[in-house]
Design a protein around this nucleic acid. Sequence first.
DNA 1: AAAGCTGGCAACCGCGCAAAG
DNA 2: TCTTTGCGCGGTTGCCAGCTT
Length: 323
Amino acid sequence: MDMDKEYYKACMGMEALPMSPAGLSAVTTEVAMAAATASEDEGDLRGGPWTAEEDMLLVDYISKHGEGRWNSLARCAGLRRTGKSCRLRWLNYLRPDVRRGNITPEEQLLILDLHSRWGNRWSKIAQRLPGRTDNEVKNYWRTRVQKHAKQLHCDVNSDRFRDVVRQVWMPRLLERIQAESSSSAGAAAAGVGVPALTRAMGSPAGASQYHCFDHASSGEPSRKVAVTMSPDTSSTLRSSLSPAETYGAHFPAWGAATATANVDGSMMQCGGRECGAIGGDQYVIHGDSLSGSWSELLAATDIPDFEFGNFDDNLWNLEDIYC
DNA sequence: AAAGCTGGCAACCGCGCAAAG
DNA sequence: TCTTTGCGCGGTTGCCAGCTT
């Protein structure tokens, strides 16, 4: 195959692509070729955890020749691994821009939101989270989200759990985002992936409406998140917002009012029990419920017949929900 | 201190799709 | 048109560190 011939030439050091991840020592072509020879002699493929040497071989090879054509890459790099294994290791771990651990509240909110619309489309969801891999998003969902569903004695895909997510978890994350940003002014300086929040003028009947435009994805239209505060929203909230502010720093705090947050630009009502409207999701916060305990918050929702279990186990405490 | 348990995460597996031969 | 190959995705497994008993 021609592609293999090209890669063989590349293996022989005839081509070098510009890319050099910092912090990794160079591995010479001679070392790679020697390893390749050894692998041919031994003839079997390795499995299990990757060693530091294998990581260096893979990174060094990709830094010189680029990624893709993983089966050929594995052979030429002298790795006793399948192409699939090399691809997975690179994409999930070695890639320079990969981010691991510390899922932020913003990312959690986005994961919950996108999963409610797309389901287990981990790769698609991960595309909206710069630096995050589908594997990490999937692991987050399985370890964190499903844990909560289990503790609530319901299926993670059930309508009831979705209601909890929309009416309790997501609003709480929004509050967290607002709290963090307000305590560190300027931390949410505009950047790629940071949605801009603008205040819509002419909102009906004294209500304040805010739209959040998510520019995180370059390939898709911006997503709009509209937040409507009813007239009895505290003046503090309204005054804290400027006409054009950033999402993290300026998402309105939730006051003693029923707030309706619409995602993806489609209007929905949760208070009116129209959750799950076509093409969108919605969550409503009743009154000042966010200032209470989780058991109180859940009790304040209109989710019927829900077994919330024992809240003394601290599962749904505030810190747990963010981690 | 040791054994057992649990959660988190890296890695593997199987399937489907698309492109090339 | 059929077969092969490469790739990507979602589901699953197994290891290991930390925690509990």
